[in-house]
Computed example of a mutant assay.
Amino acid sequence: MNNPILYFNELYQEELKHTSVKIPSACCFTTIGVDGFPNSRFVSCKEVVNDHFIITGSKTARKGIEVEQNSKVALAFWWTSTNVQVRVQGLINELDSDSSNKYFQERNRESQIVSIVSNQGEVLDDIANLEQAYKVVEEEYREQVLSTPTSFGAWEIIPFRIEFLIFIDSRFHNRILYEKEGDAWKHTLLKP
């Protein structure tokens, strides 16, 4: 296949047919930390749009600060039901506020309230204060649509390298590397 995004979508749809994983869109998102060390955490890939991988989160949390300072990032997917690993390297770009609003409104209400009351990654002095702030927002806005906090953002990861590793019983796994050259993708087979 000449297009790795189409291949990614095909493999992901196959995984969705078989998986019982609660969040099959989970992937490991790696940034370059402000101290120069790689920094990884799991996020949910919201979708793939225009060949770009979409993630969301707090712009004031560590990941938001790190991508503001260095746009080089990576994603790693591991699909347990189909034994497929996908690694993506690319550049990240913040999307506009309309996109942030769209993805915020798609979150469940509990996650929306947590995004409003919690400054993700800051030192927690007292969980009771955070729980109280949650209850206040929950009560005050019970019948209302919650507004997207300014700290919530959506980003697109524009890939320039995607590697697929499809595990097979013989241990001679299928390993395919796609690299962007201009507007085209070049692919090569790698030894497992």
Rank of each mutant, 00 (worst) to 15 (best):
Phe160Ala: 04
Val49Ser: 13
Ser20Asn: 15
Gly182Ser: 04
Ile168Phe: 14
Gln69Thr: 04
His173Ala: 11
Tyr178Asp: 04
Leu11Trp: 13
Val21Gly: 05
Glu47Val: 06
Gln13Thr: 11
Leu91Tyr: 12
Glu94Arg: 05
Val117His: 11
Val137Gly: 04
Phe8Leu: 08
Glu181Ser: 10
Ile113Phe: 11
Leu95Phe: 10
Cys45Leu: 07
Glu66Ala: 09
Ile92Asp: 01
Gln144Lys: 10
Ile162Tyr: 09
Val123Ser: 07
Leu177Tyr: 01
Asn9Phe: 12
Glu181Gln: 11
Pro38Phe: 06
His173Pro: 09
Ser58Pro: 00
Ser111Pro: 07
Asn174His: 14
Lys135Ile: 01
Val48Cys: 12
Asn83Met: 14
Thr30Leu: 08
Ile5Asp: 03
Leu177Lys: 08
Arg87His: 12
Asp51Glu: 11
Leu130Val: 08
Glu15Asp: 13
Ser97Val: 12
Thr188Pro: 00
Lys17Pro: 01
Val88Asp: 03
Val84Cys: 08
Val136Pro: 02
Asn70Met: 07
Ala76Cys: 14
Ser81Leu: 02
Glu68Ile: 06
Glu179Cys: 03
Gln120Lys: 01
Gly64Thr: 03
Asn174Trp: 12
Glu14Gly: 02
Asp51Lys: 13
Thr60Cys: 07
Arg87Pro: 00
Lys186Asp: 11
Asp51Trp: 12
Ser100Tyr: 15
Ala74Gln: 02
Arg107Val: 00
Gln13Pro: 06
Asn174Arg: 14
Pro38Asp: 02
Asn108Leu: 00
Leu189Phe: 14
Phe37Arg: 14
Asp183His: 12
Gly36Pro: 01
Asn119Cys: 03
Phe152Asn: 00
Asn39Asp: 15
Lys186Pro: 01
Arg142Ile: 05
Pro24Ala: 13
Asn2Pro: 02
Ser97Pro: 05
Phe164Ile: 14
Phe77Ala: 02
Ala128Trp: 06
Thr82Asn: 09
